[in-house]
């Protein structure tokens, strides 16, 4: 869940409380200082350089590459205009990749949020020893892709895996977890949800604990059921956070790579060949850099749209 900060997303909408006497409110008081310009370059210089070289320039270069064909060693040869894009968007193969990615992204997001809510709601009860459960529920936050893949690959292993043994023991039919297209997709979804759960739980729990207790007390007096309270008090109160975690889960899922690489390599029958994995494969397996660049641009557009949506919703709460 915790990706590199360079790829991460901004902080929670709950972040900014307005109080007086803060720098933020005194902006107007500062006067333009000629010297500040030099300081600004000194302070911003390193970051600008890095972002320019590793974020802005490559975007332009990717766009450029996507308009050409590339040869054996990845050099551009023939200018083809938009034909890489046209080929992609008319290829059943690529469209199916797009389809499976969308399915995966929404399945992961919905299940992660639903389970996160269940866990957070349970763990927000004031019971003795609840702290222990909170810690255990957040445990998967410390698991990186490679470790998660090892754990779950063993569980899904067809011959000696845990599920295979368990279903033999219980005389249940064997599910070919990693060789059947549908099952493989679910295997990856389950693993991703499991990895995401710790982080999502922690954020939702935090949001729930900041809901004023007076609301619940009032509801209790009126005899409202706990189900009613959950849907009519908890959910509305935490909706900004809910939106925030949903969208970062969504964005991160679009960028899924590690688990695919470790668990299914995009197979079977391309059933898990998602966008980022495809880019990697087309570029660094097949050497088709031009096509991979076009795919990169499409991915960027999708992610940029969701990020914009996120900014839009955050806008009112964030000081520019």
């Amino acid at each position: 869940m915790l990706k590199s900060p360079a790829q991460s997303t901004p902080t929670s909408p709950l972040s900014v409380e307005k109080t007086k006497n803060k720098i933020a409110d005194q902006e107007a008081k500062f006067t333009l200082n000629a010297k500040d310009k030099y300081f600004a370059w000194a302070f911003l210089g390193p970051s600008l350089l890095i972002l320019g070289v590793f974020i802005f320039y490559p975007m332009v270069k990717t766009l450029y590459l996507s308009l050409f064909l590339t040869n054996t060693v990845g050099k551009t040869t023939v200018f083809v205009g938009l034909s890489n894009y046209i080929n992609l968007l008319t290829s059943a193969d690529y469209l199916s990749s797009l389809g499976v990615t969308l399915f995966y992204v929404f399945a992961v997001t919905i299940i992660t949020i639903a389970l996160g809510l269940v866990l957070a709601n349970l763990a927000s009860k004031r019971l003795p020893g609840i702290g222990l459960f909170r810690t255990l529920f957040s445990a998967t936050m410390g698991v990186s892709v490679s470790v998660a893949a090892i754990f779950w690959l063993f569980i899904f292993n067809p011959s000696t895996g845990f599920l295979s043994l368990a279903s033999t023991f219980l005389h249940l039919p064997q599910i070919p977890w990693l060789t059947d297209p549908t099952a493989a997709m679910w295997a990856v979804i389950i693993t991703t949800v499991w990895m995401n759960l710790g982080f999502t739980f922690l954020i939702l729990l935090g949001a729930m604990s900041s809901v004023p207790t007076t609301l619940y007390e009032a509801a209790n007096i009126e005899g409202a059921s706990s189900r009613f309270q959950f849907f009519h008090i908890t959910i509305p109160s935490i909706s900004p956070t809910l939106f925030f975690v949903s969208i970062i889960t969504l964005i991160e899922s679009f960028k899924s790579f590690g688990l695919i690489d470790l668990m299914t390599k995009g197979g079977p029958t391309n059933a898990t060949n998602m966008l980022v994995y495809r880019i990697y494969k087309d570029a660094f397996y097949s050497g088709n850099f031009a096509q991979a660049s076009a795919e990169s641009i499409i991915l960027t557009i999708i992610i940029a749209l969701f990020t914009l949506l996120q900014f839009k919703v955050l806008e009112k709460r964030v000081n520019y």
Partner: peptide
């Protein structure tokens, strides 16, 4: 704006 540009989509030039 850089937050909208996924690093994964820039691996080739990088």
């Amino acid at each position: 704006a850089t937050m909208m540009l996924p690093f994964e989509a820039e691996i080739i030039p990088n």
